[in-house]
Amino acid sequence: MDSSNKILLASSTKNLSVLRKFIESKAIDFGFDESTIIQIILSVDEACTNIIKHAHKYDENEQIEVETKADKTEFKIILKYKGRGFDPNDLHSPDMKEYFSKYKVGGLGVPIMKKFMNKIEYVHKNSDYNSLTLIKVL
């Protein structure tokens, strides 16, 4: 078990598996059930995939800091990264009937995050500091 609450990852989809194992370990420690743990892992995977793709444009020299914090009832995953920021709260989830009727591709990461997490907080100070926090309540 990883006792540290923080990891620093090179911004690459190759590292999504490392990310998922880290989040799984912390979510188990916090006491979530299996189905909730899957929801959290998936949400963090989607958030990091968006950062890798849109903020860092697959530049593996960029980094993402991943930190978990827990109190009695809230489990927080904080992602800190440089580059172009994006607040998931600004994006409306698509109408899925229209999505399927038009055979759309992509754009489901944010809806997954919103569906599975209780709260998403985003702070953009400048291009050198973005912070995205995903919160799940026990």
């Binding site: 998922r20 995977d45 989607e46 489901l108």
Partner: peptide
């Protein structure tokens, strides 16, 4: 395990 990237592949070809 599957994330939205995997779901998108099926949408691209159906």
């Amino acid at each position: 395990y599957i994330s939205s990237a995997g779901l998108g592949v099926f949408m691209a070809f159906i």
